[in-house]
């Protein structure tokens, strides 16, 4: 069994030693706009300064996502994207950058379905979630995945799944939101490995003009209860947001704004657009020269 959360720990420690935080983890919707393009977009993001990845598995009913990701998933699914597309993207990232932490992200139903060939038999209450994710845990570990985010698997329902993934060296990465009570934050703190994903705002994914005003207080409430590294996502789209949240947490996740960058780039310029956008949000290139 791999050392649970090791790549996350190492990446955070190295960044802290360099003092150049926050780390930037881009979110890429696997298979958007086509499965064939995904590996090159992953490599482009690494060239642009990605310090890790969140690779999203498209789902037909993404109820925590705003319009940008809904549309991206619809396009990806129509182009034939599956969990395999996402695992391929993870494998590409792992081969290109052996040390970066890679997080697979998605909704529960496709993960339960993976490898079960639509079985009607997995009905034992205790095994209803744990058993069906066994095949995914195995394949994800082989693809080099370090952590998994399951948007609609809250901590209350997560214990069997967490154990299955942990047995394959994969951290179940929890989300906390500004609405999370101290009791829920403590429950997550007790179980977390890798990092904890802070949802910066009360809402769905999508770029916003500003970082939520109560984000600092939210980070404080979480910090009081855990030492696990924190990463922030939802609403982060610009270098100034990254700098602002970087004063509070060691990593930021950018999703919708990157997806929009891909969607609005010329067909033969998507990889270059991803690379440039990452250079800008990581501070390697000033915004003025980005266009």
């Amino acid at each position: 069994m791999a050392d649970l959360g090791k790549r996350y720990r190492d990446a955070f420690a190295a960044s802290a030693a360099r003092g150049d935080g926050p780390l930037l983890f881009p979110f890429l919707a696997a298979g958007f706009p086509t499965p064939e393009e995904t590996p090159e977009l992953v490599r482009a993001a690494i060239r642009g300064g990605a310090a890790g990845f969140e690779i999203g598995v498209p789902f037909s009913d993404p109820l925590a996502d705003g319009p940008v990701h809904q549309d991206a998933y619809t396009v990806a699914l129509a182009a034939g994207a599956t969990i395999e597309t996402a695992l391929d993207a993870c494998r590409t990232a792992r081969q290109t950058a052996p040390d970066i932490p890679i997080t697979l992200m998605g909704y529960l139903n496709p993960f339960l379905s993976y490898g079960s060939s639509g079985s009607r038999d997995n009905l034992d209450p205790g095994e209803a979630i744990g058993d069906p994710v066994q095949p995914l845990a195995k394949r994800a570990a082989e693809a080099g995945v370090d952590g998994i985010i399951i948007v609609d698997l809250p901590v209350d329902e997560s214990d069997t799944a967490r154990e299955v993934f942990a047995a394959h060296g994969i951290s179940l990465v929890y989300l906390l939101a500004p609405t999370s009570t101290d009791e829920r934050i403590a429950a997550v703190a007790e179980r977390a490995s890798g990092f904890i994903y802070l949802v910066s705002l009360t809402g769905v994914t999508g770029a916003r003009d500003q970082v939520a005003a109560d984000f600092k207080a939210f980070v404080g409430r979480v910090r009081a209860l855990t030492d696990t590294p924190l990463a922030v996502g939802f609403g982060i789209s610009r270098r100034e947001h990254v700098v602002e949240v970087g004063k509070l947490v060691p990593a930021a996740i950018i999703g919708s704004a990157l997806t929009t960058t891909i969607a609005s780039a010329p067909v033969d310029g998507r990889a270059q657009a991803v690379e440039r956008y990452l250079e800008v949000v990581t501070g390697r290139r000033s915004e003025e020269t980005s266009t």
């Binding site: 109820l63 209450p125 901590v155 209350d156 939101a177």
Partner: peptide, 26 residues
């Protein structure tokens, strides 16, 4: 936090985004 409430055997439960969990408890 291993509540059993809301389960009909293997069915039911609360598979919702974290943001909503406190509202469901309320």
């Amino acid at each position: 936090m291993t509540r059993e409430s809301g389960a009909f055997g293997p069915f039911g439960g609360q598979f919702a985004p974290e943001t909503l969990m406190p509202a469901l408890a309320e």
